[in-house]
Structure formats: C-alpha cells, structure tokens
C-alpha cells in the first residue's frame, strides 16, 4: 500500500504478538517440585504442631517406617505376593483383551456378538464379584488373579478394537493391491497400526489392576500391600498406613514408566 501524498508520517509501532500457548512443553522440574513442597509443608506442619499427629503422620516418620520395613524384610514379604498377583492377573487380562479386541476389530460377527457383552461387563464394579470369584476360583491366588484379569480385560478390549478401527484403510487397500496375504495384513499393518491405542489403553488397565489388587488383598489375604494397609488402618497406625500408600503410589508410577518405556521403544516411528 502506498501512503497518500502529503499526509504526515504516521506513528510506527510493533505489531503485538498474539500467538503462542496451548502447546504443552516438558518442564521436568515441576513434578518433583510439587512433591517436595507438599512434603516439606506437611513436615513443617506436623513438627510445629500446626497439624495434629492424629490427622496426619510426619513424613519423616513415614520414611523411617519404610526403611524399617525394608530392613526387617517385611517389605519383600508383602510386596512380592502383590507384584506376582499384579503381573499374573494383568498379563492374563491384557493378553486376552488384546486377542478379543483384535477379533472384534477384524470380524463383523464377533463385533456384533461381543461388543454388547463387553459394554455390559465394563461398568460392573469388579470388586463386587470377589465373593463369587472366591467360590469359582478358590480363596487363594485364583480369585485375586481372576479379579485383576477381568478388571484389565474390558478396558484393553475397548482400547484395542478402537485402535484396530482407526487403522488407516488406505494402507490396507495398498497391501491388498500388492497381494499381501490376510495374515500378513493383520500382522504388518493392523497390529502395528493399533499399537499406539493398545499402549495407551495399557496405562488405564494397569491403574485399574493396582486398585483391584489392593481391594482383593483387603478382602482376604494375610500378605500383600493391601493386607498391610488394612491392618495398619485397623490399628490406627498412621505411619504404616501411609508407608503402604507410598508403596502403592510408587507402584503406579513404576507401571506408568514401564508403559512410557514401551512406547518409546515400540513407537519410535511416530512423529514427535
């Protein structure tokens, strides 16, 4: 544009910046900082008596309890059975869930038959079924594993068939145009294409597995983190109760970290 002749030169200023934001960026320090601040606040509050020792234990005392738990060998005694239940139960639930999810994604008949069933199972609080499972699978490990398996099964099924549905159909047409076999298409296109959805479903499944693990152990176990927490609660031993809670939180963080590792490893091809 040309300035009209004879007009005095207009004031110039910079165009204000209006873009930016709405793009999460990594801030590694923020997460740990929140923990440190919160724990520091609790420590200060319980030491000064601002927070009564009846309402919250002192963080340092909880830490001491954890150390003692570790040294006495009680940690392994409670943690190992819990980890075993978690691993076994979720392994069964997740592998069955992926198999059924892929079958739903691939076969119309299976989809028509099983999607309503999965929808019916999904909202049922699995803990309510524990007494039934005790009768079916026995009071020992069987019922706990089955509970965790069922709890991880339904979210995995839903995530998996959603992932299969979202696989780019043009890639499948391409594969057909090169005469790839049906099995090759499933293995090389459908499964890798659904993998991102399956892995993010895994996050949900593992969190559910931990919740169910504790619930099952609270209802009937002598050993395990859930049993430990229940016992501490009924004795009103806040230090031990919180030590158990900390272990559960760490378990959650560990499982989420494992999924992140798997994503990094298996989904290196994804645009970042």
């Amino acid at each position: 544009m040309r300035e009209p002749a004879g007009e005095p030169e207009a004031e110039t200023r910079e165009v204000p910046f209006r873009g930016g934001g709405f793009a999460p960026r990594p801030r590694r320090w923020a997460g740990p900082l929140v923990f440190v601040l919160l724990i520091g606040l609790l420590e200060w509050g319980t030491r000064t008596g601002f927070i009564s020792s009846l309402t919250l234990p002192r963080p340092s005392a909880v830490f001491a309890t954890l150390v003692q738990l570790w040294q006495s060998g009680a940690l392994a005694e409670h943690l190992l059975p819990s980890l075993q239940r978690l691993a076994l139960g979720s392994l069964m639930g997740i592998s069955a869930g992926i198999a059924v999810g892929v079958a739903i994604g691939l076969f119309s008949l299976v989809r028509a038959g099983l999607v309503p069933l999965v929808a019916a199972l999904f909202p049922v609080p699995k803990i309510a079924l524990l007494p039934l499972f005790v009768i079916w699978f026995g009071i020992d490990e069987g019922s706990k594993n089955a509970l965790i398996a069922l709890g991880t099964f339904t979210p995995t099924v839903v995530a998996t068939y959603g992932g299969v549905d979202n696989v780019d159909r043009t890639l499948i047409r391409m594969a057909q145009s090169f005469d790839l076999s049906w099995w090759s298409i499933v293995r090389k296109i459908v499964l890798p294409g659904a993998l991102p959805a399956i892995l993010s479903g895994l996050r949900v499944s593992l969190a559910i597995a931990i919740i169910l693990l504790v619930a099952a152990e609270m209802l009937g176990a002598n050993r395990g983190i859930g049993a430990y927490v229940l016992e501490a609660g009924s004795l009103y031993d806040l230090e031990r109760l919180f030590a158990g809670v900390v272990i559960l939180s760490l378990l959650g963080i560990a499982s989420s970290w494992l999924v992140s590792r798997a994503e990094k490893l298996l989904l290196a091809w994804r645009p970042r």
């Binding site: 890639l171 391409m174 890798p192």
Partner: peptide, 11 residues
C-alpha cells in the same frame, strides 16, 4: 498401484 497419498507404513 502408486497412490496419491503415498500409502507408506509409518512404522
């Protein structure tokens, strides 16, 4: 075929 949208497997 050669497709308009390339149809390469991203993985």
């Amino acid at each position: 075929y050669v497709f308009q949208d390339f149809a390469l497997l991203p993985w």
